[in-house]
């Protein structure tokens, strides 16, 4: 059943990280995959639909926070 669990080594993802971890891990070697924040930002800017959605979601997040606080204060 668990034969599948080790199949990851043949995929295109995670290979280099895993090899590195295998060689030098042992303890919790946390390698941080750096997110290309700049690239993501450019992508959102480039496509207006994505931009709208991004704006909308941050708005709802902030409104949700306000709502939660309001409820808290109410109590």
């Amino acid at each position: 059943m668990n034969d599948f669990a080790v199949k990851n080594s043949h995929t295109l993802t995670q290979y280099d990280i895993e090899k590195l971890l295998r060689q030098f891990g042992g303890k919790e070697t946390d390698y941080v995959e750096i997110v290309d924040v700049e690239k993501n930002r450019k992508t959102i800017e480039k496509y207006p639909l994505l931009n709208d959605i991004a704006l909308a979601t941050t708005q709802t997040q902030s409104t949700k926070k306000i709502n939660k606080n309001a409820i808290k204060n109410h109590k």
Binding site: L12, T13, Q14, Y15, D16, I17, E33
Partner: peptide, 9 residues
């Protein structure tokens, strides 16, 4: 040719 670096292909 499809190669990957980490999670990116």
């Amino acid at each position: 040719l499809l190669m990957s670096r980490g999670l990116k292909q």
